[in-house]
Amino acid sequence: MGLDLLFKIAGVGILISVFHTALKQAGKEDMAHLCTLAGFTLVLLWVVQLLGKLFYTVQEVFKLS
């Protein structure tokens, strides 16, 4: 139930940090920041989808809205 998402995010995080360091060493500082931003946005997309699912379920269970 969504556990694979956890490891996807961890993977993306580790990859991005490696890319960031590698690109910084290669002297392409701006590319490194762009790459980090791209990874951050991708992970944010997944997390927000899951958050929407959570809030919908809570509204269903507790009849909030």
């Binding site: 139930m1 995010i9 995080g13 940090s17 980090t36 990874g39 951050f40 997390v47 958050l51 959570l54």
Partner: peptide, 24 residues
């Protein structure tokens, strides 16, 4: 492991786990 150099991913990871446990 990710907190040191990429704290924003660490926070998103812990947020994801809290959501999953909450759903369970």
């Amino acid at each position: 492991m990710m907190k040191k150099d990429r704290p924003e991913f660490a926070i998103q990871l812990s947020l994801t786990l809290t959501i999953i446990i909450f759903l369970i």
